[in-house]
Design a protein around this nucleic acid. Structure first.
Lengths: 198, 198
DNA sequence: TTTACTTTATGATTTGAGTCATAAACCGAT
DNA sequence: ATCGGTTTATGACTCAAATCATAAAGTAAA
């Protein structure tokens, strides 16, 4: 999102995380801007009985975790590496400088936040009021535009496990599996050796 | 959010809406920036069978509906006047100018978006994975900080109808009524002639 | 190729929020 | 004071998703 050159010229450093590593935790005070060089990161919450809710999955060139940085608020969720990954990290004061100096960066930030707010608006309305199949279809369509998909001859391949879909929509795995099958029967999607295509 | 003087010096105009009036509709192309002078506005979706989901309720000095403006996307929800209200309206090109010229305005926009994203993150995790009482309590605590409350000797008075709470959390009115009562029994909240206090 | 683990799959059962019906309490306008 | 509309309230019943149990299929590592 922020061009590499700019980040590097402003003393951002690189850091690698192994799959499963925790980048920051819910409740911590944010001190840095993070942008993905390669790999994938999820932001998620765990509720009292250990169930996970995935706020979003981010990949190359995307940033995450800025909102509380601007609000002097604690992180509302955890950031965890979904795969091995490498990040640019920029300290809060340097990041804020960069924004103030550079109108195009601040516009990029605005667009990025607007983007994520849009996703949340759409999914919030879905999650709260629709049946599982509808919810999943929306997630699938949304994920095609924004994460984890590759275009193949059979259509777009959704690179999410059933469990991830469950955690993104607030459903249980079993419900996702059953709904996915129902959607296949209705010809809304295809399943080719367990992968979902649309 | 954007100072009145600035809005006026940039040719924003004022417009009044009666209670219930539709300011814009889901699916329309955004052309303006809106900021509330007085009154309240809700953004909401209606699903196939007419049920409403409230994305947020906004009041004095708050703006709404910017995200799709930045993304050249259609409105994902309707904006409806909850009470009689008056708004500042600024055309898209003038608004974008204003942001580009003025770093403090663009920072204000960033903070505003971050704020709303934060609310959505918190509520998304709640809505998708918690029991009604937990969900409602979170909404109540959040609404104390951000909308529709007044501090009284009995505590904060939540100025939301049961129906609004239902539409904000994705629950049904009856469930809200029952859960609110259960919360009162557990001494989490007070109910004084039908109003909720916390 | 065997082992250990993850992901997908499927049936049986439970449960709690949704739905439906009905009514009381409240509020504003005439 | 009366009337129409909204908001709150409550009970009975339904049903779909969650839960529980169990296993097959796939995958990665030793």
């Amino acid at each position: 999102m922020i061009p590499e050159e700019l980040l590097e010229s402003h003393q951002a450093f690189r850091k690698k995380y192994a799959k499963g590593a925790i980048i920051f935790r819910e409740g911590e005070l944010p001190n840095h801007y993070f942008q993905i060089i390669h790999g994938e990161v999820k932001m998620c919450n765990f509720n009292d009985d250990g169930r996970e809710f995935i706020q979003g999955i981010f990949s190359t060139k995307q940033s995450f975790g800025e909102p509380p940085l601007f609000l002097n608020r604690l992180y509302p969720a955890n950031a965890i590496a979904v795969s091995d990954c490498e990040l640019f990290i920029l300290s809060k004061p340097l990041f804020l400088n960069l924004i103030n100096e550079n109108a195009s960066v601040s516009m990029a930030i605005i667009e990025n936040l607007a983007q994520r707010l849009h996703y949340k608006s759409v999914m919030a309305a879905e999650i709260s009021s629709q049946e599982p199949e509808h919810r999943l279809l929306k997630l699938i369509d949304y994920s095609i535009r924004f994460f984890k998909t590759e275009k193949e001859k059979e259509g777009y391949r959704i690179d999410l496990t059933r469990q991830q879909m469950a955690d993104l929509t607030g459903l249980r795995v079993e419900t996702v599996i059953r709904s996915i099958k129902a959607l296949e029967k209705k010809n809304e999607i295809k399943i080719i050796n367990r992968k979902v295509y649309r």
